[in-house]
Design a protein around this nucleic acid. Structure first.
Lengths: 341, 341
DNA sequence: CTGTTAGCGCGTTCAT
DNA sequence: ATGAACGCGCTAACAG
């Protein structure tokens, strides 16, 4: 076990018979250092394999070049793609990424925030836990000059940085597509009522049908708690409506798959008697016998990149000259992807 | 923009008219501090909302309570589940997790290692980039007392900590299952030759067939580079063998799906004329019309947890008393999961 | 151009 | 039981 001490600027200074500040400046290519000494310093640093101690620099500069990312769960594909985007942008900007999973537990979320604050992360990117209503633990970070960027699961407040999916636009596109394909009775398979997206979906449903002068039947808007059983029950409602809907817009691919499975068991011909469109979170629809006929792509990787870029911008903007109360609210446009047969 | 300064022990000391060392000790419940002062300190710390500056502590203690995790890609489900396990165990032990994606680029991998070293992470958990052969950039970390735990994509060297999937055992189980189901001609759809797993699969193939006294035909062992086209070409080979194999063991679910798609296009009845077994990396086989009939589950989340636990053990073991050259090599046993129809 | 000095916040001797 | 003083590695005034 080698007890090799890592070289420090002090050591370099000693060997070169110069002061530490000279070494520090030389290493940073400060203009006021003579070319000659600068070269000697660089050379010895090279030889000794000198690497600046980031822990010391973080301490001194009160900047860690680390951003914290808090998400419900890394296992979910949506989030792992998102963090992949976050990390890509961050690393391009020489930032480190610290992760924490809230597991959709508000208490855990608070703990992570506290831990990250103590770690002195430079900023926090977060997708809120499912039931987080109160975001005081995040707004309090403003006092410590730790910027926060919310993404995907964002709070309703306007005075925060956030990037989220344009649920209204995506839904509008999906419904327009279905109507254009001749569907007049369209069912909605929503998530839990509390979800903001459910409300928005219903809202756009009414908007589009009204514009197209189609009859609005709210019994065609049902909810599932996302479990297979609940989805089946919801489908039961939809399929027993008279007349039966000819198309269903489902909250996500998983729900759509469960719904399709159920519809099949009822001997319905998928994408003929009954069409499905859902919001994409699966990469495998192409291997399915009967996939949804289209999906609204939400680009999680892009969302992550965008959130990360906003964070970089905020961190790099001059604290003095910046407008203090300017917040960024980005909507990611979804694209409707038609699945070829 | 509030310029609120974070409270420090110095500040507490000032307000209480005691010395910083007293405060420090009181906060750590050092026995030599009078109960009275200790309480006063704790109370004021509470009031001021004092939080120790981890950046300072990291600097001073030369310990960051942070482990670095380097993986090829966060988007791949296997890895995101693994890191989920890593993070769960780490956070239970009050460790932070810093992530880096190598994107299967060796140079990038080296950069990340360097950056993490400078960050003074306490240890590194890594799944190697696809083509990393030389692991000097990891073994060099021993000089700095930074332990390394490899997982999944591990190096061949024996003198490292590693946790990997028991490919031999899983393959044996899969082949035994096929033989038990009456298959005598079994094809192997291997990955690139360089992959350690491909060699092992072939090895076990020969072992099992020999033991079962079945004819070994190495023309039934083919390779794909994992792309759809390559898989089709490989399937062409397998299907043109005389007699045709009745079962195929594929390197992973994606390849199996491509192979199944192709076999279907050749009008073969899946799981009747031609059975598939593969290694699980997809959660959705249950929604497929014709899934592989069984999968060898590799438990990525468990692998992550195990790797993380090993890291925790290594970090907590007494550096003085520990055997210096004791390395842990854990094999994760796979389970064969039969997919019900 | 270069050196001296003073911290950053904390834990830790060594005194008292 | 408590305080004074030092140093971790580095940057940044301030002095020449």
């Amino acid at each position: 076990m080698s007890e090799k001490k890592l070289p420090t600027i002090k050591e370099i200074a000693r060997q070169l018979n110069v002061s530490v500040s000279t070494v520090s400046r030389a290493l940073h290519n400060h203009p006021s250092i003579g070319l000659r000494t600068r070269m000697r310093v660089h050379q010895l640093a090279e030889e000794l394999n000198y690497e600046p101690n980031q822990a010391a620099i973080s301490f001194k500069q009160r900047r860690t070049y680390t951003i914290g990312v808090i998400l419900p769960n890394l296992k979910e594909q949506f989030f792992s793609e998102a963090i992949s985007g976050i990390e890509d942008i961050a690393s391009q900007n020489k930032y480190n990424v610290l992760i924490g999973q809230s597991h959709d537990d508000v208490e855990r979320e608070k703990q992570i925030v506290a831990a990250m604050k103590n770690q002195r992360v430079d900023g926090i990117i977060v997708s809120l836990a499912k039931h987080t209503k109160n975001i005081d633990h995040f707004t309090a970070l403003k006092k410590y000059d730790i910027p926060v960027v919310f993404f995907d699961r964002v709070p309703a407040q306007p005075n925060v940085n956030k990037v989220s999916f344009d649920m209204r636009g995506g839904t509008r596109e999906a419904l327009d597509y279905l109507v254009a394909n001749g569907h007049k009775r369209i069912g909605i398979l929503n998530g839990p009522e509390e979800m903001k997206s459910s409300k928005e979906r219903t809202e756009i449903y009414m908007e589009v049908l009204q514009k197209r002068r189609l009859k609005i039947d709210l019994s065609l808007v049902v909810s599932t708690d996302l479990t297979k059983e609940s989805t089946r029950a919801a489908m039961d409602q939809l399929l027993s409506a008279k007349p039966r809907p000819t198309a269903i817009l489902a909250i996500n691919d998983w729900v759509a798959l469960d719904a399709i499975q159920y519809a099949k068991s009822q001997h319905l011909k998928i994408n003929e008697e009954l069409c499905f469109v859902s919001y994409a979170n699966l990469p495998i629809t192409s291997y399915l016998e009967t996939p949804p006929m289209a999906s609204v792509e939400q680009y999680p990787y892009e969302q992550g990149k965008t959130a990360s870029q906003i964070m970089m911008d905020v961190l790099n903007q001059d604290k003095e000259t910046a407008e203090p109360e300017l917040y960024i609210n980005t909507l990611i446009k979804g694209g409707l992807v038609i699945h070829e047969k």
